[in-house]
Nucleic acid binder design. Structure first.
Lengths: 176, 176
DNA sequence: TCGATAATATATCAATTCGATATATATCTT
DNA sequence: AAGATATATATCGAATTGATATATTATCGA
């Protein structure tokens, strides 16, 4: 599923500028989809060209002007079509796990730091999910399911690290 | 962490051809790092140019010839350096979760199919981990930790889906 | 033994994505 | 007045993805 499709998804919840779409990605989608301006702006240009969205320049007082995008009927149809034909892939790219796999090449102190940093990141993400859930009162059923899923998976990872970190460090110190 | 670095990591476990490196990615790293030939072969060419690996053409009987790569001292040093300076990012790109978030735009039957497919994929990945653990008898401590981590997280996700699928489908049917 | 399929092996390429950077306006703080 | 932060759009080189091309050998059923 490409950034174009995700932009259609965000716009199905209401009109937005590229900047606002980026904020939705950061605030609500960051646990399962990361995208930056470098992919969002070209995606919106292409969607406009395809007629899947329309674009209007909005002058603002006290802020720079913005381009607000609106989902067309053709855009919604294309979005539904993509959702219907997409396999539910779920892929992880984890530098954390790479670092752990090669932990025997690092000083134990650095491994401790890696685990601690990962735990901090998990806490930060948990807070973000909770904040996001409490803010969006009446959201779609899938949103609540997804938030719960992300939460559960993060908690399981946190508990595993906390339970096994001692064992890992012991094994690493024994080998060296 | 880029594909070049991961190739150095694989080669730190022993000499290998591009094809064999790909198999290691698939068999052992697939839960946290996916890479195809399109990134592996260019990475090996660049690493050779940098002097981080050496390459020798090996003729084989009963098989096509292969290029076997060997990690140099400079390569190992560069690998350690990268491991020392890399933040333990852990990112998920999940079409599954996107589909769930927009489940209200799909027929409930399709949502059921998505959840079932995801559960099948999880089972397949769990089997791969178990197979991988049983095959590599005496592996590095980090490898065991990483396998346990991946296993725990997958199990938590599976249990969540099984526990909450009924609720999600009920909510979706009520709205429509 | 013929033909199909699968496994081994390398390589390339267009399309997409990533990450950094550039530019500009307005607000808020010190 | 200076400096930091938030809003806002855009571009670009580098890296990655996913598909495709090519070739050899093995395997297995008809």
């Amino acid at each position: 599923m490409d950034v174009k499709t995700l932009c259609l998804g965000v716009l199905s919840m209401g009109d937005a500028s590229g900047y606002e779409i980026k904020k939705v990605f950061e605030d609500s989608f960051s646990h399962f989809y990361v995208a930056g301006f470098g992919s969002i702006y070209p995606a919106l240009a292409e969607l406009t060209r395809l007629g899947h969205v329309t674009c209007s320049n909005i002058e603002q007082e006290k802020r720079p002007a913005k381009k607000v995008y609106h989902l067309t009927d053709a855009g919604l149809q294309a979005f539904r079509q993509t959702l219907s034909g997409t396999h539910p892939h779920h892929r992880v790219r984890s530098d954390f796990m790479v670092l752990v796999v090669f932990a025997h090449l690092l000083p134990p102190q650095r491994v401790e730091q890696i685990l601690a940093t990962r735990l901090e990141d998990i806490e930060r993400q948990l807070k973000l999910i909770d904040h996001c859930v409490s803010e969006n009162g009446q959201s779609a059923p899938g949103t609540a399911f997804a938030a719960g899923f992300a939460r559960t998976v993060l908690l399981a990872g946190r508990d595993y690290i906390e339970a096994q970190r001692g064992e890992l460090l012991k094994a690493l110190r024994e080998k060296s």
